[in-house]
Design a protein around this nucleic acid. Sequence first.
DNA 1: AAGTCGGGGGA
DNA 2: TCCCCAGACTT
Length: 368
Amino acid sequence: MTFMLMMSKNDNKASMNWQESLIKWFAGNHRELPWRWTGDPYDVLVSEFMLQQTQVATVIPYFHRWKHVFPDIDSLARADQSEVLKLWEGLGYYSRARRLHECAKSVVASGGKLPGDYESLLKLPGIGSYTAAAIASLGFGQRVAVVDGNVLRVRARMLADSSDITKSEVKKRYFKELNELIRDVSDVSSFNQGMMELGALICRPREAICVECPVRQWCLGHSTGTALEYPRKPAKASRPCYDVSVGLIFHDGKYLILRRSPEQMLGGLWEFPGGKVEPGESHEECVVREVLEETGLDVEIVRKVGAVKHAYSHFGIEMHAYICALRGSSEVVCERPWAWVESNEFGKYAFPKANHKVFELLKQQGVI
DNA sequence: AAGTCGGGGGA
DNA sequence: TCCCCAGACTT
C-alpha cells in the first residue's frame, strides 16, 4: 500500500525516467519566448524558419517585426517578395525567406490550413526533417522527435557516443532512437523543447553545467567525466578568401544598384555592380571590366572609398569599393533588374551585410 | 553523402 | 580567429 502510494506520486527520481525528469525541468526552467505557447501554428512556422541555423536571441526582434507586418499566413502569402526580403535583411540564409514565402503561398492555395502531420509538412518548401517535426510536435502535439544541433549534442554526451554527428546516417539513427524513447512520454512538445533548451542552457557546446542537469544520472558523459569530449566532429577545411571590387556609379545624384537573381546566393537582394578580381588584374581594372560586363556602362574610377572584409560560411571576401563616373552614355543594358537610387533611398532595398559595411564607410566619409 | 548557403555571438 | 547556432536543398 505504501509502495503503491509512492509510485503513484511519481516524484521520486528513482521512479522517473530521464524523459520525464527533462520534462519536469523544462516546465520550471525554460525561457519565455514570443512564439512559445501562443497556440498559433503560424507562430511555430515562422519561428522555426527563422531559427534554422540561427540563435534564439538573434531571432526575437525579427520575429516581432515579422508578426507586426505579416500577422497571419494569408498576409504573408499576399506579400511581395521584395517586402519579405526586406524584413529578413540581416538575418542571413535568404533562401529561408523565399521558401517561407513559397510555403505560405502553397498552404493558402490549398485551403489556408497548415497541415499538422510530419509527412505532409515535409512536402512543403523549406521544411525538412527538423522543421516538420518541430511544427508537428510543438504546433500540433504529434508524437515525433526533433533532431537539431542541440539534440545531437545532448544525446552524444548522454551515450558517450563517438559517432560523427555530421553524418546523415548518425542523424537518422538518433531520430529513430528518439522516436522510440518518446513513445510513452507525458508531453511530447515539452520533451522536444526541453531537449533543445537543455542544449542551449545547460549542455552547451563548450560548457556543460552538469550540476544543474536534470538527466545527469542517466548521462554516461557525466558519469565518466568526458561530456565535453562529445560530440566528435571532423576538422573543418580552411576557407578561401577572394578579392572583390564594386563600383559606386554616381550620376545625376543617384547610384546604380542591381538585383541578384533569385537562384543565386543572396538571391533577390540588391548590390552594387562588381565582382571577383581576376588573376593579374588590378582592383580598378576589375571595377571597370565588371561594370561594363554587367551594365554596359563605360566608367572611370574617381576615387577609392575603402575596403571591407566579410566572412561567409565557406569563404571570405575583401570588398574594395570605388566611386565611379560615367564616361559615356547612362543607358544601362542589363538582364537583371536595376535601379538608380539616391543614397537616402538605400533603406528601401534589401542589401547583404557586405554592402552595409560599405555604407558605413560612406557615412564615415560624409559621402552619404 | 558531400557541398552550399549568411550572419551573429561567445570564447 | 574559430566554432556553433531550434537546417534545407542540390548534385
